[in-house]
Design a protein around this nucleic acid. Sequence first.
DNA 1: CTGAAAGCGCTTACAG
DNA 2: CTGAAAGCGCTTACAG
Lengths: 345, 345
Amino acid sequence: MPRKRRASSFDVARLAGVSRTTVSLVLNNAPHAHISEETRRRVWEAARKLQYFPHAAARSLVEGRTRTVALVWHRGPDVNYRDVFLPGLLQGLASALHAQGYSLLFRPIEPQEPDDVVLELALGGYADGLIISGPKAEDPVLAELVRREVPVVLHGQVPGLALPYVDVDNVAGAKRAVSHLLRLGHRRIAIITNARPEYVSARQRLEGYRLALREAGITPLPQWIQYGDFDEASGRKAMQALLEVQPRPTAVFVASDLVALGALYALWEAGVRVPQDMAVVGFDDLPLAAYTIPPLTTVRVPAWDLGFAAGQLMLHRLQGRPAVSQRLPIELVVRASCGSGSNTP
Amino acid sequence: MPRKRRASSFDVARLAGVSRTTVSLVLNNAPHAHISEETRRRVWEAARKLQYFPHAAARSLVEGRTRTVALVWHRGPDVNYRDVFLPGLLQGLASALHAQGYSLLFRPIEPQEPDDVVLELALGGYADGLIISGPKAEDPVLAELVRREVPVVLHGQVPGLALPYVDVDNVAGAKRAVSHLLRLGHRRIAIITNARPEYVSARQRLEGYRLALREAGITPLPQWIQYGDFDEASGRKAMQALLEVQPRPTAVFVASDLVALGALYALWEAGVRVPQDMAVVGFDDLPLAAYTIPPLTTVRVPAWDLGFAAGQLMLHRLQGRPAVSQRLPIELVVRASCGSGSNTP
DNA sequence: CTGAAAGCGCTTACAG
DNA sequence: CTGAAAGCGCTTACAG
């Protein structure tokens, strides 16, 4: 048995007593090849014995595809925020890809990197398709990729771009959260968004908030609407502003768990009890949400499912099947911070 | 300008009026090639104009290496725990690799997957080397990889294996945390480990705890030592046990922020004030540590640095340079939960 | 049912 | 200083 050198199809062919053609046909389960059971058995046995794996580069070269998909991870102002979802997203994505024999390349892009690097991923034969997370509408690379007919799936929506995407249903999620507060009897319900209004997700979650209030016949006061900026510090500041509003709101929908963490902190500092004096609902359902003080009622964002859906979408695109954008459904996780759940995580 | 078809070195050669050899020599900055400035300029110009990127598979095939490193991410009982560090680790790793033109393949391994898949990564030419996270000492794949001389770097130590690794200095970190509590005047200091004693990191952090106490002339009571199990629930349970101990400890070192989150929760439930009635120090410095109630004093684990160091180690190994294991230094981040920091995050 | 041969797109000795 | 040619390890028509 060879120790260092990897086995080639030639070695397998020799050991099995057949040609390299036959080895390839058997190992790839070629559909139209009529090969005897006995021959197949011998080839598989030889491959196993030699620990033979077809060389990826050789196969890529001849097949004209890499069976690899790249996740393009733009570093930007919201990267810490998205980082929380990266593990789930990556593992869901990998799961979809591996099921079809595809590999996953992870490619973070620093702000100062030239546009070329994304193009190179596709044109240099590093990946057959790109999953792009944190896309920007104005990004010229996106247009260039479309022009070169590179298969692309976006993680997060970009209005005005006809590219397939996966995302959660932000509007429905926010609406669900606020409806829950309304059902608990709250009328003065404020919002702290997850991000500044330039961000699509922030606008959509704000829209869900407005929709829920409108259905209840409530017009939110302008002071009820505060903008978060991805992190805990922004939530603390926004909550401090909210505490000044007269009459004080009795509930807040915070459209991000991280921002909500800062908001809870501000309430604790101010001696305002949650949920008695102020009910709080978050968005994301990070693992920590079950252990905030008190535990946070929140809207679950299924990171793994998003990754899996993105992978499926890409595989469909790569196989020429219709690739339709996915807006994944959300779910409200009721804990103690809204006043209707239990205090036990 | 071609739209769909990617340019090949042939296209570049024709446009620049030279041979494909010259194109390759120029674009790769071949050291011994004496080529006129004018020719170089023409080649670069043609490559730029055609958006030419050498085909990765073709290059891999001829060079006999992929310029790709795979991160092997074993899913196991501690995966949620390690997931918290994945974004930092990945991005640090990618940063080290990209600086040298290497790509990063992400490969999660599910528990039921056969051992072959890790071997295939190397023998099938998917990667030149493997970074293995969450390695197990008994893993037969590890031995096989060594036997086949596959370059491997471990994330986390495995005693008895002569493979290069990167890790934090768990002993020093724990010792530092406990020394801080001693300096604040605490004598009855308990510990909740990050994991069960089978885990190397749990044993090392416990050792740091013992070392610090010994230096202060204190012998810990057996009841002071509780084992966490990666998650918040285990921290809550361990803290509840600790609250029964008489006389009650005045401080706890919780060797994981996630576990500490559960411990803080148990203290809140029991009406025990932090830090007045019980000082708490964590380990990891997750982003949320600054916003627990009260903010958590903790030992920082530099995830990005660990990834970067792992990448560097691998590159050294791949270039035949000495690859020496790295134990990264730690740092104590003082906040409010220990009683000596400020309450402002 | 199986084999000999071409070719995927590069890099690299080797000639000139 | 530059070009013609071999070869990396596969897959796939094409013969037989």
